[in-house]
Design a protein around this nucleic acid. Structure first.
Lengths: 145, 145
DNA sequence: GCAACTGGTCGATGTCATCAGTCATGGCGA
DNA sequence: TCGCCATGACTGATGACATCGACCAGTTGC
């Protein structure tokens, strides 16, 4: 269903999604129409969900990054989820099992902003914040084999 | 330094990084050589750090996703960091302030695999695992304005 | 006020994507 | 076992696109 060549193509695109079909053809040893067809099928099957860019938030003044664990007060779960989604500085959020209902990533320009944003949540939830010091593993793919 | 047009280009590429220069030219109202030049400068300045793809880990059998908080035992910090980096199922890891030294994202195919991987860490660290049930906020950009 | 720099357009050229047509292969039923 | 169909690949022609050089307008600093 997803063979070695597909994986080659995916990793090649993971490294640089703007590679031309011709370049991908050379990498995979196929012709470019064949590559185009494979990409089409990978998209169709939902394996390839999109082509995107990585940008550096620091370039927009986001000096701080925090991981926030969020435990809504009784009856406030819906409201808390709504708020998280509505605050664009939350750039990622998972709803998880355990005491902490949500674990979210927050980008802010300053401590003041961090404080302000969390205060808004604190009327509906308890939060626990950890500031990111370093990122030993940058977003990557799990093994496909 | 980074004006409205750059932001337009970035959001356009965020939506689909394979858009042609011509398409980006139409979106931004510039000519395609100008777009090429702007992208070149954005890359050079490190604002645009790369072009990549989103793939669906489920298509490779990764049914479970967990957020793991990791607190190394005394003197084991280096070793734990080394291990996390070496286990490819950890697809993301941040070193943070607070009791939990690391917060990592883990993709696994089964509970057994989850158990196996965490056991390897547990000789050097205490862990606290939360299974992802849902992702209310998918990776997105903070406001650029 | 002028020179140099920045950031843009236009048009020519070569490269690339795409489409139609063709062919090899593997699985399946007659 | 033979023939048939479906799949997935290749090739070559055509049109779209990226790229490069030449040129131009607006700004800054001297």
């Amino acid at each position: 269903m997803t063979d070695d060549i597909d994986q080659l193509l995916i990793t090649a695109l993971m490294e640089d999604s703007r590679r031309s079909l011709k370049a991908l053809a050379q990498i995979s040893g196929l012709s470019s129409p064949s590559v185009a067809e494979r990409l089409r099928r990978l998209e169709e099957r939902g394996v390839l969900k999109g082509y995107t860019v990585e940008i550096d938030p620091k370039c927009f003044g986001y000096q701080l990054q925090a991981i926030v664990r969020i435990r809504p007060l009784p009856g406030q779960l819906q409201e808390v989820e709504r708020q998280i989604m509505a605050i664009p500085e939350f750039t990622e959020c998972d709803k998880v099992t355990g005491d902490d209902c949500f674990i979210a990533r927050l980008h802010v320009r300053s401590m003041e902003q961090l404080d302000t944003l969390l205060d808004r949540l604190n009327t509906h939830a308890e939060t626990n914040t950890a500031i990111v010091k370093k990122t030993p593993v940058k977003r990557r793919l799990p093994p496909m084999a």
